[in-house]
């Protein structure tokens, strides 16, 4: 059982990621996005950037497994200027880079802040990995676990650290449910059983609502982090 869901607790302080900058101001909120290969992490990051970039100062760190495809995609889509996107290499072990040895990611975040800061929000995308891959609290303040309906509707039932402890579970590609025969109500029930009160958002980036609900959640996290009101949409 994960004992620290209040990861945006303003009092939280670790050696690796103190909550304040050297000058005493509050550093950028760091949100991690993890989940299996192809579930829609990069697409969600791109959509979040489009939804939030007008009001917030953003940057993205990607963790590709053996290419810089995710960073290249974000650059191609021009969701942010290139100097706000940084790619970390993970030596074939994406979970190591976000959990067991976070030093390269911490450096990427700090370099972004130094180069283009002050930043409000840094999104850190993990390389696609298995259901046990979660971010270290030394690296991020809140984490989103992204799964999709096409990867098997039994994934919420199987649980695991990502599904059961992430601050937000996103069940993506709901538009595909009819084609792959996924039982969305069953997934919602299983997720509830695994997660209790922790939030779950069903998302289709192909639909009208798109990333809207996840963007709202991110704004709430940021409001709690900075201790002020949520920035207007």
């Amino acid at each position: 059982m994960h004992l620290d869901h209040q990861v945006t607790d303003p009092e939280r302080h670790t050696h690796s990621a103190p909550a304040t900058r050297a000058d005493g101001s509050r550093r950028a909120l760091r949100i991690g996005l993890g989940g299996p290969v192809g579930s829609g992490k990069t697409a969600t990051v791109a959509a979040l950037c489009r939804a939030l970039r007008d009001r917030l100062s953003l940057a993205v760190v990607t963790n590709d497994i053996y290419t810089s495809e995710d960073a290249a995609f974000l650059l191609r889509e021009a969701v942010l200027p290139p100097e706000r996107i940084s790619a970390v290499e993970t030596g074939a072990c994406p979970h190591t880079a976000i959990r067991d040895d976070i030093s390269a990611n911490l450096e990427a975040v700090e370099d972004l802040e130094e180069a283009v800061g002050p930043l409000d929000l840094v999104l850190v995308e993990s390389g696609g990995d298995n259901l046990t891959a979660t971010f270290s609290q030394g690296l991020i303040d809140a984490q989103i676990f992204v799964i999709d309906v096409a990867g098997g509707d039994d994934i919420p039932r199987k649980g695991g650290p990502g599904v059961s402890t992430a601050d937000l579970l996103v069940i993506n590609k709901t538009d595909l449910a009819p084609y792959v025969g996924s039982d969305l109500e069953g997934m919602a029930r299983d997720a509830k059983a695994q997660r209790g009160e922790l939030p779950v958002i069903f998302q289709s980036l192909r639909s009208e609502a798109g990333v809207g609900p996840v963007a709202d959640w991110a704004r709430e996290q940021l409001a709690a982090w900075t201790g002020g009101a949520a920035p207007a949409a």
Partner: peptide, 11 residues
Amino acid sequence: GRFPAGGHAHS
């Protein structure tokens, strides 16, 4: 080898 100093990403 698990000392968290980045070595895991290098060959």
